[in-house]
């Protein structure tokens, strides 16, 4: 190909280029709108509930049992609030966390590190992924049949925690598997090379490296579980409880009442929202703010853990 004469060189913007740039800019605008919609919706929702809850949300609301009378919630009255449901939710999530971490991490370690690569393992893995997509009400039905009826735990705190565990377990297993898979094989080999057994490799190399990912996945799943209403509704959690699910342990130390009835924040909020008196919409909003505050702090913790420990890979 011969070189063109410099007079032939034209670098002006052509009509064709201008049209392509316009399409590019429209595309950017569409993407930006898509990205903004979620954030804007969240901000509007937050502002709306905070506006509705304003004046009703105070310390007394956090520390008092609920009431059917709207007057009790007013400042200076005898005080009413979300206390039993708040404690119920926290205990429920704490129990769920314990069950989920043991079962989820155990299953993930088995599938990634021990299970032979065969058709059975792939079948199990595919089904765990499928279970993550099962609607939560189905887990509620399962919890009702299995924990409440068959094992006769009743509509208790522990039955609720076990049901929520079933609900989030598939997500935790998949997240943990991904975290374990991300551990570089070279590091496993390094440990094997100095004479570590498989258990030592998992304990010293795989789990420490995978733990931030496992924790992040678990906490995000738990923050999904804390807002779930359908499963605990199915197993018969109370809509309104006047005292938290806490009982006297040995020596009068308060301990969680694992086998007693309980309420949780989503149930209590649902109850308030269905009460006919006009003021209760504000009470429900105040409950939502508390629930969101707990949920967002859990997510913040997950982000902190990821940031703090995953910077070094």
């Amino acid at each position: 190909m011969s070189h063109r004469e410099s007079a032939d060189l034209a670098f002006e913007t052509t009509e064709n280029l201008r049209r392509k740039r316009l399409i590019g800019r429209i595309f950017v605008a569409i993407c930006l709108i898509s990205a903004s919609i979620g954030v804007i919706a969240l901000i509007v929702l937050l502002l709306d509930v905070i506006y509705e809850a304003w004046g009703w949300l105070n310390l007394t609301f956090l520390t008092s049992p609920p009431s059917q009378l709207i007057e009790d919630y007013l400042p200076g009255a005898r005080g009413a609030g979300i206390f039993p449901a708040l404690i119920g939710s926290i205990l429920l999530i704490a129990l769920t966390a314990i069950f989920t971490i043991f079962l989820g991490v155990g299953a993930a370690v088995y599938l990634e590190e021990y299970a032979p690569e065969n058709r059975w393992t792939s079948l199990i893995e595919a089904n765990i992924a499928n279970l993550a997509a099962v609607p939560s009400i189905v887990y509620g039905l399962l919890g009702l049949a299995l924990f409440v009826r068959a094992i006769q735990l009743g509509s208790s705190l522990i039955a609720g925690a076990l049901t929520l565990t079933l609900l989030i377990l598939p997500i935790v297993i998949v997240a943990s598997q991904e975290a374990i898979r991300a551990v570089p094989d070279s590091r496993r080999q390094a440990a094997y090379g100095v004479g570590a057994t498989q258990w030592e490799v998992i304990r010293d190399v795989v789990l420490p490296a995978a733990l931030p990912g496992i924790m992040t996945g678990t906490i995000l799943s738990l923050s999904r579980a804390i807002g779930e209403t359908a499963p605990i509704l199915m197993i018969g959690a109370a809509t309104t409880m006047f005292r938290p699910p806490i009982t006297d342990g040995p020596g009068g130390i308060p301990i969680p009442d694992l086998f007693g009835p309980f309420s949780a924040m989503p149930m209590q909020i649902f109850d308030w929202a269905t009460l006919p008196q006009a003021g209760f919409q504000h009470i429900a909003a105040a409950g939502i703010v508390v629930l969101l505050a707990v949920l967002l702090s859990m997510n913040a913790l997950a982000i902190y853990i990821r940031y703090r420990y995953e910077t070094k890979v």
Binding site: S186, Q189, A190, Y192, V194, G195
Partner: peptide, 28 residues
């Protein structure tokens, strides 16, 4: 493998201190 040590193609230290890296094989 305790009698036959191995060094790999890419350096693969553990994400631990220098001391703990060297001590790891001894400890296990």
């Amino acid at each position: 493998r305790r009698a036959i040590g191995m060094v790999f193609q890419r350096p693969n230290p553990f994400p631990k201190s220098i001391y703990d890296n060297v001590a790891y094989g001894l400890k296990i």
